[in-house]
Computed example of a mutant assay.
Amino acid sequence: MATYSPQNRTLISSATLSRRKGKILYRTVLTVVLVLFTLVFLGPLYWMVTGGLKSASEVVANPPTYFPKHPKPGNYHTAWSDFTIPRLLFNTLYYAFGALLFQLIFDVAAAYAISKLRPIFGKLILGGMLATLMIPAAVLVVPQYMTVLDLPVLHVNLIGTPWAIWLPTVANGFNIFLLKRFFDSIPEDLMHAAAIDGAGPLRTLWSIVLPMSRPILGVVSIFAVVNVWKDFLWPMLVEPDPKKQPINIGINSLSQGIPENVIIAGLAIASVPTLLIFLLFQRNIMSGLTAGSLKG
């Protein structure tokens, strides 16, 4: 006789699913939900890609067309040259990997200290970091801008320099939490063995912790690059020179006098790198997020 277990509770009971009508209803609802979510997420991407293939008049036509009547692939070549996409891509990569470097250095150090060195008030500090995740990013724009406008102690104006983009990305509470959770799963026996062999905290971090933390470091790296790549408001405020702006802001700054279909084609090109990052590393992202969640 089967026993009841709370772990077996589902929205639809197994008895209902074993019936023919239950299976049909379940599969119908599942198919409808999947199709709706697919349309919601892929609809804007489809509109952007096909919009870049339309003529300028067809883009603004009402009602809109679902597929270009006369596709114009040349719009993408025009966007590539008019927006100087290679230079904007270089700027974006420069900012993204600079932010990644600083995040790996400081966030790893913070997470390692809280997880393994266990300083006084470590839990309180971690709680304060996580509390910052509850604050809307828009609320922090003015204080951050005033900070980079006149950096405390040094009294240096960072507007128009890469530091204005890099520094606000360093203290990322979410990344510190992910790293700390993974570091917690590393057995203490390894840490004690390293201490017995004479390894100090930095040596232990470099030789033991970091080699074991490649999955979560990969996830943090992807998040760091994508966050800088998709950011719009902050780089627009702190980098007024269109020649030094990342791709999203650069396209916006250089869009004066350019047809809308070419602008849409430029935006489609700008979205390709982040889509490729997700498609290529989605398995790494999921494995990194779940790594360290179970101890054993």
Rank of each mutant, 00 (worst) to 15 (best):
H70I: 06
V60W: 08
T50D: 03
Y112T: 02
F41M: 15
N62A: 13
L89I: 01
G160D: 06
A56P: 02
A110Y: 09
L133E: 06
L151C: 06
Y95N: 00
V40D: 08
L104E: 03
T92H: 04
N175M: 09
K123C: 13
F106Y: 14
R118L: 09
I176P: 07
L100F: 11
A99N: 11
V141C: 02
I176D: 09
N62F: 13
K116A: 13
L93F: 15
Y145A: 00
K54M: 08
Q103N: 08
P119N: 12
V108G: 06
F106Q: 03
P119E: 05
H77R: 11
P136Y: 13
P63R: 00
L93Q: 10
H70G: 07
I120A: 13
P44A: 08
F174V: 09
F41P: 05
F37L: 11
F177M: 06
Y95H: 03
A109W: 13
T50F: 06
V40G: 03
I159T: 13
L117P: 13
L100V: 12
E58M: 10
T147K: 04
M146C: 08
L104A: 15
G173D: 05
T65L: 07
A99F: 09
A137T: 11
N91C: 05
G160M: 04
P162Y: 01
Y76N: 05
L158A: 12
G122T: 11
Y66R: 11
A96T: 05
G173H: 03
F102H: 00
F83S: 01
M146N: 15
T161V: 14
V40C: 05
A171M: 14
A99E: 08
W47Q: 10
F83Y: 06
V59N: 03
G51D: 03
I105D: 08
D82V: 12
L104V: 15
L53D: 07
K69R: 13
L149Y: 12
T169K: 14
V108S: 12
A56E: 14
T132M: 14
A79M: 10
G52E: 01
P73I: 02
L130V: 08
I159Q: 01
L130A: 02
K72P: 00
A96H: 09
P68L: 01
V49W: 13
I85L: 02
G160T: 01
G128H: 04
A99D: 14
K69Q: 09
P63N: 07
L117E: 14
N75T: 00
Q103W: 00
I125W: 05
P152Q: 10
L117G: 12
L88R: 01
A56V: 05
L151M: 15
G51C: 09
L130T: 12
G98R: 01
L53M: 09
L154V: 14
D150E: 14
V141Y: 10
Y145E: 10
V148Y: 11
L101A: 15
